[in-house]
Amino acid sequence: MNPVVLDHITKTYENGKVLAASDVSFEVASGELFGLIGPDGAGKTSLFRILTTLLLPDKGNASVLGLDCNKDFEEIRRRIGYMPGRFSLYQDLTVKENLDFFATLFGSTLEENYSLIKDIYEQIKPFNNRRAGKLSGGMKQKLALCCALIHKPEVLFLDEPTTGVDVVSRKEFWDMLKTLKQQGITIVVSTPYMDEAMLCERIALIQTGKILTIDTPGKIIAAFPVPLYAVKAKDTYRLLTELRKRSEIASCFAFGDYVHITLKDNSNESQTDQLKQELIQAGHEQFEIKRIEPTIEDSFIQLMSQTYGR
């Protein structure tokens, strides 16, 4: 049996008015690095809380390590590691005090599983006597990860560990996750950053409580149904408004200084040449159009439109 199983989970708040999870099912295999990708308010945190036995679903069953999240919550709590979103530790305790506290709380010691956290801990060890509140965002996150790992959990749940953390620290954090994965720990991680999806083995894209798709990032990208083009011109805003008016364009979204478009009719390759000519004639400078590989963000947008008919 897979270590993490969600089976038709539905969860609402405020007497059914707010839908946090709508018929969500997925499984995470042993030793897998699984990502839950979606914007704020998509329902990621609710799913994490159900899996970590902190919330009961309205409908459906959840199990972790073969144990029922409702009945066997005490056993589950002993065997998992959890880093909640916005988890900020005890600001007024030092690094060492935080670690010792959480180690004891989970019935372990810093020394007992030292090999597991060694790589991460050594980076913050020089600040052992500094209060957690005085650490930088990246350091805090490392400390939090150490605290979550200190009892050698079999499954690790990380809810938005990289939110609000700068790029450098984010990169380091994902490197740490890869190392942990090599030690056989099953990891479920959530993030609102689409670009982090590529760093997971398998991902679920989630939006307003619904799973849009579940697969490896590569397969999700490969499943993009139509050719995707990137268009660029000097005046992006003008390009955007003019492209939106054109009848042959199916979708049109700004991606940085490019605009990604799909066409309604994909049988005729020469359409793009015509588009180019007409827009250059309309006075667009530095015009450029090229076929590109979709990113996860393209897929997300496409799946969102498909699911919600935007």
Binding site: G38, P39, D40, A42, T163, G164, P192, M194, Q207, T236, Y237, R238, L240, F253, A254, E297, F300, I301, M304, S305, R310
Partner: peptide
């Protein structure tokens, strides 16, 4: 636009572009 979905983010940037224009 931290944390919003990709479609909403783009709608938001459309507004910013318009304001700039």
């Amino acid at each position: 636009t931290g944390g919003v979905d990709p479609v909403t983010r783009r709608q938001f940037w459309d507004m910013i572009y318009e304001a700039a224009a």
